[in-house]
Simulated assay, not measured.
Amino acid sequence: MKPTLTTKSNAKTRWQSSFFSKIWIGVPITTWLFLLIIIPICIMLITSFYIKEGSVVVKKISLANYLEFFINPIYLPIFFRTLLLALLVSLTSILLGYPLAYLVSRKVKHFRNQLYMLVIVPLWVSYLVRIVAWRTILGRVGVLNTILLSLKIIDEPLSIFIYSPFAVYVALIYIALPYVFISIFNSLEKIPKNLLDASADLGANSFHTFLHVILPLSMPGVISGFTLAFVIALGDYIIPQQLGGLNGMMFGNLIVTQFGYAYNWPLGAALGFIMFTVAVFILLVSQKFGSSEGFLE
């Protein structure tokens, strides 16, 4: 029986209705992306090619701001120091977050959900409140110095804990660790139990099962957690400002200074776009290596 003209017309109408409904559903998301992400990035990129003459921003296309980044002896050392610190924070967060996520996901039988909530509960607390808490812990009259003095380990309060790269390093790990934990935990939860049973049936002990099954299959979560920690540490400027002092200054502080005290928005935009490019590169690399369900062959 051949389809009638009415049937074809109804099918075409339903297809058009479905097509346009999908388009309308995507309009709010697309608008949000353009207004809050794409347009600001384009404005920042255009502004980075302007120059500042005196106290006035001149809309004249120039590469002077990007050349300033390479010529000025201040920017490159702080930029590489920021990259190094972000890398150390990411690696340390993985080393601390993976055992914790593995313990909660695979070993804990009771109070599993409660332990999970305890790890992520700091995310519910204000960012600034957590930084102030670290100043209380690391200060000269803080908790850490008080404990060391009471144990007679030191004779007078140490100043190396606060306003130093060490304080920035510790606080950034504290901020990034919950995100790393969540990424790895979710990756571990997705591993099918029948693969672990099959590994045990083939004679593999717990160590070999972890090394050849669990670890490869959880690598997407590890890479995702590493990326989150790296981007968080790369762009943070509040922690270095509150805990780092002059010795703990990072690249984000230079960008904030250009937009604030120096009132050099073109140079700040150029420095910001350089950081943005590095972050996008890291995200693309992590997506390439972490897009699969694991590295199990």
Rank of each mutant, 00 (worst) to 15 (best):
T146H: 12
V168C: 02
L172M: 14
N247Y: 06
L144W: 08
I160K: 04
I191V: 15
F185K: 12
L228P: 00
P178Q: 07
V222R: 01
T146E: 10
L211I: 08
M219S: 10
L177G: 05
G225K: 07
L196G: 06
H208I: 09
V132Y: 15
I173F: 05
P192T: 12
P165A: 06
A133Q: 08
L196D: 12
S159R: 06
Y237R: 07
I214S: 10
E189K: 15
V168H: 00
G142R: 08
I162S: 05
H212T: 14
L144D: 05
L246H: 04
L158C: 00
V168R: 01
L195P: 04
F230K: 00
A171F: 02
L151H: 04
A133T: 13
P178G: 09
S150A: 14
N186T: 12
A233C: 08
I153Q: 05
V129M: 12
F181N: 04
P192W: 07
V180H: 06
E156N: 06
F161E: 00
G225N: 06
L243W: 05
P220L: 13
R130F: 11
L177R: 00
L217D: 01
L149Q: 12
Y127R: 11
A200G: 07
R130H: 10
V168T: 01
G245A: 09
L215D: 04
W134K: 07
D197A: 12
S164Y: 00
F230L: 04
G225P: 03
I173G: 00
G225R: 03
G139M: 12
L243A: 08
V222C: 02
L234T: 06
A198I: 11
F226E: 04
V168A: 02
T146P: 03
L243G: 04
V222Y: 01
T227M: 10
N186P: 07
I147F: 14
I239K: 03
Y237L: 01
F181V: 03
D201I: 13
A229M: 04
I147Q: 08
A233Q: 03
A204Y: 13
D236N: 15
S218T: 09
A176F: 00
L202Y: 10
F181G: 02
T227Y: 01
D201Y: 10
K152E: 13
V213D: 07
I147V: 15
E156H: 09
V129W: 03
D155T: 08
P178T: 09
S224W: 01
A198T: 14
K152N: 15
S224N: 13
P216L: 09
R135Q: 15
I238T: 13
Y169E: 00
R135F: 07
S206C: 01
D236W: 02
V222A: 05
M219N: 08
L188T: 05
I239R: 02
